[in-house]
Design a binder for these strands. Structure first.
Lengths: 185, 185
DNA sequence: AGGCACTACTCAACAAGTTGACTATCCGAG
DNA sequence: CTCGGATAGTCAACTTGTTGAGTAGTGCCT
């Protein structure tokens, strides 16, 4: 019952189809709440059944029909109630970290490759987040934007995603350097 | 089948009971692989059934018996095989971020409290990680330690946990400041 | 002397998340 | 003119993860 809240938060940006949400979750929500497409479709159905979202079918030419979901008044209230609740501690699960933890008895070259891979992904994500940020700021300084904007939430979470990926990058780089030095033993 | 790998990595530190692992997972593994006690007990049983760990019962005076688990040769091989596999992208799920995303239509004072709470937790974690780090380094410089130590994995993952919590702290602080400035609108 | 916290688990029920296969149409590349 | 990829999903089976309660002895504080 928590994916639900992430979806409601995502729908604050406006109407979206399951498919829209599935690829990117609006780019920003995806960063702190991972979910597979199946989960989204299932949860959106349930939320519609519970009256938290309105679904409307849009017939398209040259394309399959889609269902666009939007937050209902009940959904908005539920989201408000959720923000009043103490959040549970966040969960992280990262196989790469497990592999690094075990690198000394594991397949070091493979772990290095995984680190390099992760660096590349982090760079891509950073670039995406920076573009999104530039789009939001639209030439203004951060302080001006934060004073004027009607919503600051999306910007703040975007910044967290950005800093997370930057730290990822730094850490992967550092770890590779450490492994290099040991390889040269 | 992935908690399994986290457990094997944790058992590289040596024999441990389910209870030991449940509280802290050896302090470090817990940071990148969250799990409830029940999960651990269940998974350890399965791993013992699959021959990945050895279990030995230790009778204690003044205390219930416990089962100490240690990695078997098969477990070690399985862990090696796991490190050779490309890791899947890490998962994050953080309700606090969802709340911040929705702060503009949510209960702002409650979200602030949640941010302050998270800051306090981050500080506690940082302090714990720093103590662990000092214990590992034992007076040496990082470079010397990394050259001498027989394992670098645990140190590297510790550093990731540390940087994660530091960023958490910074971000919560910044977010609170932003919300303050808007409150004074 | 009573109550709570700690150690060290076990069991059962339920909720959430993952995987893989399947449908159907359209567009552009080769 | 066929193939792959994008759009926009559905269905079923399975694996993980979560919650809550129960057990049982010891030590500590009041």
């Amino acid at each position: 019952m928590a994916l639900r809240h992430a979806l409601m938060a995502a729908l604050l940006e406006g109407e979206a189809s399951g498919y829209d949400l599935a690829k990117g979750f609006d780019a920003s929500v995806a960063n702190f709440w991972a979910a597979t497409p199946q989960q989204l479709y299932r949860e959106l159905d349930r939320m519609a059944a519970d009256g938290l979202v309105h679904a409307r079918v849009v017939h398209q030419q040259h394309r399959p029909d889609k269902r666009l979901f939007s937050l209902s008044e009940a959904g908005r209230r539920a989201l408000h109630a959720f923000t009043a609740q103490p959040p549970r501690p966040g969960v992280i699960r990262d196989e790469l970290l497990v592999q690094v933890q075990a690198v000394d008895v594991g397949d070091e070259p493979a772990v290095r490759r995984a680190l390099a891979e992760r660096m590349a992904r982090a760079e891509t994500k950073i670039a995406g987040y920076e573009r999104l940020r530039a789009r939001l700021l639209d030439g203004r300084f951060e302080d001006d934007y934060l004073a004027e904007a009607e919503r600051v939430g999306p910007y703040l979470t975007l910044m967290r995603g950005l800093s997370f990926e930057r730290e990822n990058l730094r850490w992967c780089e550092h770890s590779l350097k450490v492994l290099d030095r040991r390889a040269a033993r």
